[in-house]
């Protein structure tokens, strides 16, 4: 039920993020969602793309440190209150969220929450009880 996310190390240099994006677009890799976490010095760019393994190879070749991380893609309605409902389900089951970001999914008109938790199995179980099933990569693209 996990999907693969690219976690990319960004060193402290101007133009690093756009170099990553350029390399992916030159290889015809489509990015569905992206977020950047940073500190004063460094950053991690997290990307959901349609061909994670190819994306990793392309980036590694251009000298970028990239790892594939498993995350959950949880479908939700594109309307007020949906995100807080999801978060409540997770927190009620004592699942803590390491990070999350969301995007609107053009296929179903709904939205998707990407999240990494301390307990993926527990999260899937808690969501299941509420009739929510995380998306697979096939469903996402």
């Amino acid at each position: 039920m996990n999907i693969r996310q690219l976690s990319i190390f960004l060193e402290n240099k101007v133009g690093r993020a756009s170099a990553v994006i350029d390399a992916l677009s030159e290889s015809n890799i489509n990015i569905s969602a992206l977020s950047i976490a940073d500190t004063a010095e460094y950053g991690i760019m997290r990307i959901i793309a349609d061909n994670p393994q190819k994306a990793k190879d392309v980036l590694t070749d251009t000298g970028v440190m990239v790892k594939i991380t498993n995350v959950l893609a949880i479908p939700m309605g594109h309307k007020p209150g949906e995100l807080s409902r999801l978060l409540k389900i997770l927190t009620d089951s004592d699942i803590s969220i390491e990070y999350m970001y969301a995007f609107v999914n053009e296929h179903n008109g709904g939205a998707v929450l990407i999240t990494k938790t301390n307990n993926p199995e527990g999260a899937i179980e808690a969501l299941g009880k509420n009739k929510i099933t995380p998306l697979t990569e096939n469903e996402l693209f």
Partner: peptide
């Protein structure tokens, strides 16, 4: 940065 030093967490960097 090497494989063994990098993890998907800002804190770990």
């Amino acid at each position: 940065m090497s494989e063994s030093m990098f993890a998907d967490e800002v804190r770990s960097i």
